[in-house]
Structures are given as structure tokens and as C-alpha cells.
């Protein structure tokens, strides 16, 4: 097996599906240009031509409705937004049309549409380039929502998403694009709606969302040195949620920290916490703890960013607090920053 990064996994999944199925096409603002959405569409316009990989006007709403129209008439569109903050211009189509189209037509018309949205922290990108907004979309029946963390998960889930007859929104944290690991070359599917235990452990469960799984791994390594065993669960698909995997993990450990790269208030972490409390009430040794953005708009300056975003340090201290341990001195530890691109491995 060879190493492939997360952007390469998206590119390879898209390319392989476009080779297999002539109905698949990919489009969006800047998609076929040299910048190629962090490299995720690099080489695709050359290989498949502008009919199957094309740029669009800056018209997110119409372009989403256009995708719906193409999807109900035999094509399988992949619509890409270089920021989720731009995708919200398409919320009328996503929430009023795409999500209920199959339902309103009594199941007669399926909408096999994939919508990719880049999320997450950049470098001083501020209030309109840094969101995640998971729960805005998991709230809506009729949409599948995925947020793969690892390159191999991304490849298999992207292929599954393209083959799915339902609309699928795929959240991609931009810091993950450089993550590398062994990824099989042949096409394969990882079923949507199935989570994954990224790291087994016994003292506390950390449910990580997207990038926060990277932070959780680092936190788990640091905590392991102190004899604390952390289990990391990556739901991978947020809707439909693999609730059982999370519940069983929390029942085993009796403790749960949810690490999100989104706001905490009414965020996806609130949904997870509610379900864990409903299903694990008698087994919990401590209240569920949630970690996420500060409840402020995303700031621009680094000092405020450091206060705003949670990271491995936040997770380490949350675990210590939950276990009644003293806070460790983390001065010698190496944490991620944008300047030090994360390359893995997973």
C-alpha cells in the first residue's frame, strides 16, 4: 500500500467514481482552476473535460438547485464549496428543497447529490471563513451528513456518498488535507452511518468530530504517559448517527468528553450529549463534558484564535479534571499550528 493524503483521497475517490460511472460530475466555484480546492480536484478537468468538471458563477443557491435538477434526471452531481460559510447561501435549496424532495414526491424522485463543504480554521481567517455548522444540517431530516477524519475513511466514505441515492453533505476540515496514511488504491466503500473506534481505551471516551480526532490522539498520547487510557470514537457519519457504537463505548468507560470543532451551544455536541445521557444514565461516573469553540464569532488575531479554538491541551485538561487528576505541565509538548502542517500518520 502507498501513502495518500486526505486531499488525495478525495481526488482519487472522485476520479475512480467518474471513471466507473459517466453520470458523475463535479462542479463549483473554482473547482477546475489551478487552485483545485486544496488539490482535491487536481487533474480531474484534464482527465474528464469541462463537461464533467466545471466552474460556476458565484451563485450558490441556483447552483444547488441546478444540482437537484440534474440529480433527479439521471446525473450524479458533486457540488463543492471552498468554505461552508459560502454554502449557507444555498440553505434555501438544501433545507427547503433537497432535504424534502424525495419525501414530498412520495419517494418517486431520489436526489443523489453530494455537497462538499470545506470547514475549519485557517490562518487569521476570522468570522466568515472558519465555521463548521454541523448541527445546522444534522438538524434537518432527509440529509445525510458526513465528516470523515482519516484519508482512508474519506476515500471509502466519499465513494459511498457518490453511490448513495440520497443527498449527502460532506464536511472536510482544511487542516486534514495534508494528513497522510496508507490508503488502498482500489475503489472501496465504507458504509455511511457506521462509526469507528480510532483508539481503544478504558478510562474515558473522547468522541471526536473531524479535526478534533487529531487533537484527541495527541491528547491520548500525552495522557498515556500518565497512565490514563483514552478511547477515541469517531462517528464519521453525523447523520444517520452510529449511536450504538458511542453508547457502548461510554458504557464501558463510564466517562465521556465530546470534542467538537464547532460552537458548543446547540451544536452537534449537544445532540451527542443528550443521547449519551438518555442511553448511559446509570453508567456515567461523571457528567458528560463538551469541548468546542468559545461562544463568540471566530476572531482573526492569533492571540484570540488561541483562546477561541480548543486543542489537545483542552482535551488533556478536561480528562484530568474528569478523573480528579492534577493538571500536568504541558510545556514540553508539541501542539499543532497552521505553520506546522499535520502530515499524520493516522
Amino acid at each position: 500500500m502507498r501513502k495518500l493524503d486526505y486531499a488525495g483521497a478525495i481526488r482519487e475517490a472522485t476520479t475512480q467514481e467518474m471513471e466507473r460511472d459517466s453520470r458523475v460530475f463535479v462542479y463549483g466555484i473554482g473547482v477546475p482552476t489551478w487552485s483545485s480546492i486544496f488539490g482535491t480536484t487536481k487533474g480531474i478537468p484534464e482527465k474528464f473535460g469541462k463537461e464533467r468538471c466545471f466552474d460556476t458563477p458565484i451563485s450558490e443557491d441556483a447552483m444547488t438547485g441546478f444540482g437537484l435538477g440534474a440529480a433527479i434526471r439521471g446525473l450524479r452531481p458533486i457540488h463543492v464549496h471552498i468554505r461552508v460559510d459560502f454554502m449557507i447561501l444555498a440553505t434555501n435549496q438544501l433545507i427547503n428543497m433537497v432535504s424534502n424532495y424525495t419525501y414530498s414526491t412520495g419517494g418517486k424522485l431520489k436526489v443523489p447529490l453530494v455537497v462538499r463543504a470545506v470547514i475549519g480554521r485557517g490562518w487569521g481567517q476570522g468570522a466568515q471563513h472558519s465555521k463548521a455548522l454541523f448541527s445546522n444540517f444534522t438538524h434537518i431530516p432527509g440529509l445525510k451528513v458526513i465528516a470523515p477524519t482519516t484519508p482512508s475513511d474519506m476515500k471509502g466514505m466519499m465513494i459511498a456518498a457518490i453511490r448513495d441515492d440520497n443527498p449527502v453533505i460532506c464536511f472536510e476540515h482544511r487542516w486534514l488535507y495534508w494528513a497522510e496514511e496508507d490508503v488502498p488504491e482500489e475503489p472501496y466503500e465504507i458504509p455511511l452511518g457506521v462509526g469507528r473506534i480510532l483508539r481503544p481505551g478504558k478510562d474515558v471516551t473522547v468522541v471526536g468530530l473531524s479535526w478534533m480526532n487529531v487533537e484527541a490522539r495527541l491528547a491520548a498520547d500525552i495522557l498515556a504517559k500518565r497512565g490514563v487510557s483514552v478511547e477515541i470514537v469517531d462517528p464519521r457519519t453525523l447523520a444517520p448517527l452510529d449511536e450504538n457504537l458511542i453508547v457502548e463505548s461510554v458504557k464501558r468507560t463510564g466517562r465521556c468528553i465530546i470534542a467538537d470543532c464547532d460552537w458548543v451551544d446547540s451544536g452537534f455536541s449537544a445532540e451527542l450529549s443528550a443521547r449519551i445521557n438518555e442511553k448511559c444514565f446509570g453508567k456515567l461516573k461523571a457528567p458528560v463534558k463538551r469541548i468546542g469553540f468559545a461562544q463568540t464569532p471566530a476572531p482573526t488575531v492569533r492571540e484570540l484564535e488561541n483562546e477561541f479554538y480548543p486543542n489537545a491541551k483542552t482535551i488533556v485538561h478536561a480528562v484530568e479534571d474528569m478523573l480528579g487528576l492534577e493538571a500536568a505541565n504541558l510545556d514540553g509538548e508539541d501542539f499543532f499550528s497552521h505553520e506546522r502542517r499535520f502530515r499524520g500518520p493516522f
Binding site: 438547485g65 435538477g69 433527479i72
Partner: peptide, 17 residues
Amino acid sequence: SAVVASTIPHAVGAALS
């Protein structure tokens, strides 16, 4: 659609197909 204008782009997508 009950949301005014929302089906207009659907026709464009179907036409492309």
C-alpha cells in the same frame, strides 16, 4: 415548491441532463 422561485434552477439542472 411553496418557496417562490425555488424550482427555477431545478429546470436548468434537468435541462443540462
